[in-house]
Amino acid sequence: MQSYNLNHLRELEAESIFIIREVAAQFERPVLLFSGGKDSIVMSHLAVKAFRPAKLPFPLLHIDTGHNFPETIEFRDGLVEKIGARLVVGSVQESIDSGRATEETGPNASRNIIQTVTLLDTMEKYSFDAALGGGRRDEEKARAKERFFSHRDSFGQWDPKNQRPELWNLFNGRKIQGEHFRVFPLSNWTEMDVWQYILLEQIEIPSLYFAHQRECVNRKGVWLAKSDYIQLLDGEKWETKQIRFRTIGDMSCTGATISDATTIEDIIKEVAAARSTERGTRADDKRSETAMEDRKKEGYF
């Protein structure tokens, strides 16, 4: 008896591949945003499937904050070589040096917000008209209202109250010169789906996601890894802990969780039992109730 049912992961996969192909068909100069995190790794995995045996019809774009984990850069370069993709790097340091962006100061300084400047400048420089991102609707409440095809005006801004309705599988990517789209093929995936898919497909991910010993400081309940970008405050001290990262962003704002998960199966068990969201360890989201929406309106990912 042949089966005509797809399980949830295969159905999500089919949907995402459809969206990725639609971007290649509808836009002239698309690009895939690659952060080195698990979502963008899954995105590149799906993109390879969408076009094989041909190579990706678009480059990967990494917005380099200069505050990356060294493991992330190493992993990025290995992956780019393996899939034979073209890599474009937008440097936040250059945006700061050229006066386009101003570095935050203070103990909680982060380059998270000024990444937007570099992203928009890089999109303009290469005339990219669509940026594929790994954003998911379950990540954050403002993202829950995001479309697959998210229209941005020529300033890169998102207008959440005036979004195009999105019906069936008909995606309207029409735009005027200078405008662009952010496209989110993983919109319907949850953190759990991503991990289950990584297991199902045996996708390689950076070692940072697995439990390891690292020097950290506990700041307001968030474990931050020791790096040149973190300065100790009064009363704080470095402690060696067995940790792993649930998300990978900047070293300055990505918190770690205490964990002994050393395999994908362990991670799935941990995620299933988790009592806080993965972004619960992200200092950048804790700034205000609508921090994500406010950043997105300005052109954030």
């Binding site: 949830h8 609707r137 379950d138 409440k141 829950a144 209202k145 959440p160 109250k161 979004q163 919109s187 319907n188 949850t190 759990m192 789906d193």
Partner: peptide, 14 residues
């Protein structure tokens, strides 16, 4: 205001 998408799973379905 707008359509919001939410996700949950039970052991049987997502």
């Amino acid at each position: 205001i707008d359509v919001a998408y939410r996700y949950f799973a039970t052991p049987k379905r997502k």
